[in-house]
C-alpha cells in the first residue's frame, strides 16, 4: 500500500483514526463504509431476532393478583412453542395459508407469466400502457387496496353485487367459504404486475440470436414460448415464487382490514394476525414470540423445499 490517504471527505473523521491499523485490506475504509448499514442491521434485524428467540424460550410469571408481588422470568424450554402448537386456531391458520398459497401462488405466477409473454410477444398494441396499468396496483398499499376492494365486496355498496343480482346471480364475497378467495383476489391484484415486471426483465435478457434461429427453423410463437422463453425465465419464476411463498405466510393487512366487514375472519385467521392478537390482545409476548419464530421457520422450510424441488427437476 503506497497510496497516501488524506481523508478529506466530510463526515468521516473516524476513518482517519482507524485506518492506520489495517493496512493491506483497504485500511479502515471498508469498515467506515459499511458501519452505518451494519449498525442499523444489527439493531433492526439481529437484535430483534435474538430477542424473539430469547423471549420465546422464557416464561414470565407474575405473583399476586395484579403482579404486585413481583415478576419472575425463567427459562421455559419449549413450553411456549408447545402452547402455540396446542392452539388449534393458530395451527389451523397455518394450514389455511398453505391452502391459500397452493391455489393463489400458482394462479398469480401463471397469470403474470402469460401477461409478460403477451406483452413481449410484439403482437400487442400499446404495451407501455398495459404494462403501466398492470403495475399500478403495486404502488397502492395493501391496506388501501383492501379498503378499495372491501367497498366492492360489501353488499349495498358494491356495484359488482348489484350487477350480478340483476343477472340473477347472488354473490357473497364475504361468506365463510368465499372470504379467503376474496383476500386471494386482493393479493393477486396487488402483486401480479410486480412479478410480471421481474419476468419481463428476464425475457429482455434472452439473446436475439435465439429468436432468429427459431424463426429460421419456422417455429411458431407457441413453440418459441415453450422451448426458448419458458426455460430461460426459470430463474425469475423461481425467485417470484419463493417471494410469494414468504409473502403468503406474512399475510396480515388484508384480513385485518376485512375483519370489520367479514365476520368469518376471526382474530386468528392468519398466522401473523394470530401472533398480533396474542401479543396485543392477550399481552402474552412470549407465546407471540414463539409464534413469530414458527412462522419464520415455516417460511424458510417451504422456500427450501421449493428450491430443492426445482433444483432436482432441473438437473
Amino acid at each position: 500500500m503506497t497510496v497516501t490517504r488524506n481523508i478529506t471527505t466530510a463526515g468521516a473523521p473516524a476513518s482517519a483514526r482507524r485506518h492506520r491499523g489495517r493496512a493491506g485490506s483497504g485500511g479502515a475504509a471498508p469498515w467506515v463504509l459499511i458501519a452505518p448499514f451494519l449498525a442499523l442491521f444489527v439493531l433492526t434485524f439481529i437484535l430483534p431476532i435474538i430477542v424473539a428467540i430469547g423471549s420465546s424460550f422464557t416464561r414470565v410469571t407474575r405473583s399476586g393478583l395484579f403482579g404486585e408481588a413481583g415478576v419472575v422470568t425463567e427459562f421455559a424450554w419449549f413450553q411456549n412453542y408447545a402452547q402455540a402448537l396446542a392452539d388449534g386456531n393458530f395451527v389451523a391458520s397455518i394450514w389455511r395459508m398453505l391452502l391459500f398459497g397452493i391455489i393463489q401462488v400458482p394462479v398469480m405466477i401463471v397469470l403474470c407469466t402469460i401477461l409478460a409473454l403477451l406483452l413481449e410477444s410484439a403482437s400487442a398494441r400499446w404495451p407501455g400502457f398495459f404494462r403501466a396499468a398492470y403495475f399500478l396496483p403495486y404502488g397502492i398499499p395493501g391496506v388501501i387496496a383492501t379498503i378499495l376492494w372491501s367497498f366492492l365486496y360489501v353488499p349495498g355498496l358494491s356495484p359488482i353485487i348489484d350487477i350480478a343480482a340483476v343477472v340473477g346471480l347472488p354473490l357473497d364475497f364475504l361468506g365463510p367459504s368465499t372470504v379467503l378467495w376474496s383476500i386471494a383476489n386482493i393479493v393477486t391484484w396487488t402483486y401480479t404486475g410486480y412479478n410480471m415486471m421481474i419476468i419481463i426483465a428476464q425475457l429482455k435478457s434472452i439473446p436475439a440470436e435465439l429468436y432468429e434461429a427459431a424463426k429460421v427453423d419456422g417455429a411458431s410463437s407457441w413453440r418459441v414460448a415453450r422451448s426458448i422463453q419458458l426455460p430461460l425465465i426459470r430463474p425469475a419464476l423461481v425467485l417470484t415464487t419463493v417471494f410469494s411463498i414468504i409473502g403468503t405466510l406474512q399475510l396480515f393487512a388484508e384480513p385485518q382490514v376485512l375483519q370489520d366487514v367479514a365476520p368469518a375472519i376471526d382474530s386468528q385467521y392468519t398466522p401473523n394476525l394470530s401472533a398480533y392478537t396474542t401479543a396485543f390482545a392477550y399481552n402474552d409476548y412470549n407465546v407471540a414470540a414463539a409464534q413469530s419464530v414458527l412462522i419464520a421457520l415455516v417460511a424458510f422450510l417451504l422456500s427450501f423445499v421449493f428450491l430443492r424441488f426445482t433444483n432436482r427437476r432441473s438437473s
Binding site: 433492526t44 431476532i49 406474512q250 419464520a296
Partner: peptide, 13 residues
Amino acid sequence: LVPGTATALPLFL
C-alpha cells in the same frame, strides 16, 4: 429471507 413482519413484534419489545 427473514419476513419483515417476523421482526416487527420483537422490534417493538
